[in-house]
Design a protein around this nucleic acid. Sequence first.
DNA 1: CTTTGTGCAAAGGCTTTGCATGCTT
DNA 2: AAGCATGCAAAGCCTTTGCACAAAG
Lengths: 141, 141
Amino acid sequence: METSAPNPAQSSATYRRNTKQRTAIVAMLSSFDDFRSAQQIHDLLTERDNPVGLTTVYRALQALAADGAIDVIIADDGEARYRLCSRGHHHHLVCRGCGSTVEVAGPTVERWAAKVAAEHGFTEPEHTIEISGLCPNCQAN
Amino acid sequence: METSAPNPAQSSATYRRNTKQRTAIVAMLSSFDDFRSAQQIHDLLTERDNPVGLTTVYRALQALAADGAIDVIIADDGEARYRLCSRGHHHHLVCRGCGSTVEVAGPTVERWAAKVAAEHGFTEPEHTIEISGLCPNCQAN
DNA sequence: CTTTGTGCAAAGGCTTTGCATGCTT
DNA sequence: AAGCATGCAAAGCCTTTGCACAAAG
C-alpha cells in the first residue's frame, strides 16, 4: 500500500463553503487516527443519523485532499483510504496481520530521499514510504 | 504509488502449463524494464499480431505475481502495473513530469527500514519506497 | 482422456459525472 | 439573488467471474 507524501505543495487551499455535510465528514475523520475508505465514512455517517450522499463524501474528500488537509493512500486492492493530516511528516509501519499502524518519523530517510533525488538531478522531491511486518501481537498467532 | 516489496515468500511456484499466450506475455514483459499496465500489455500484443484476450492477460499476470515472478505496483489512480522481477532489490525515482524512472539502490534505507521495524517489535519486515521529483529534462519546460 | 488455459460476455466494485434542486453567502 | 454544494442516477474504469470451447500433458 502506498502513502501519498504529505502534500508539500498544499497550495492555496481554495475557498469552500461550510455545509453540515462537510462538517460532519471532517468531524468523522477527526474521530479516527487511522485510514478509512469513503464507503466506511459514508456508512458510519448514515448509521449515526447524519446521512450524507456517497457522492458528496467523495467530493468532500477530493477537495480536502486537494487542499492538503487529508492524506490519501491507495490500498493494494486499489481502494483509496483517507485520514486527516497529522501534525508532522511521518511514515507508517503497518502490520500485515491485523492492519494496525504505527507512525514513525524518519529523519534518516528524509535525508536519504533528498540526496538520491539530487544525485540524479531531480528537483522538488517527494517520497512515499511504507514499512510492513508482523506486530508483536500477531506473532503470537 | 506503491511498490510491492519483492515477494519474500515466493513460495512454491505452482505448476503452469506452457501456452503461447503466456509465453507472449512473458516475452512482452521481458522487453520492458519498467512498469506497464495490463491494458498496455494487451494492446501491444494485439498491435504486434499476437492477440491475447484481456482476461488472459489479467490471469497470467495474476499467476506470475503469485509465483513471485513479477512485481506489482498500484498507481495513484488505482491501476495496477506489472514488471518482471529485477535481479536485485531496489526502488524507483520517478519523474512527475514525464514518468521516466531511475532505479536506485539504497543500503541506507534498507537498514533504516529494518531498524524501525525491529524497534517496534515487528518481524518479517518489508518495505515500499517511491521517490518522485522533476527530472532534469522536465525542469527545462 | 483429463485437466488447465483461453476468451467472450457479463457482473462487480470503486469513483466520477450530469443535472436539477437546495443551501450558503 | 447568485453560485457553489448536494444527491440521485447513470456512466466509466479496472478487474474478476461464469461458462463453453480449445489446447496441453
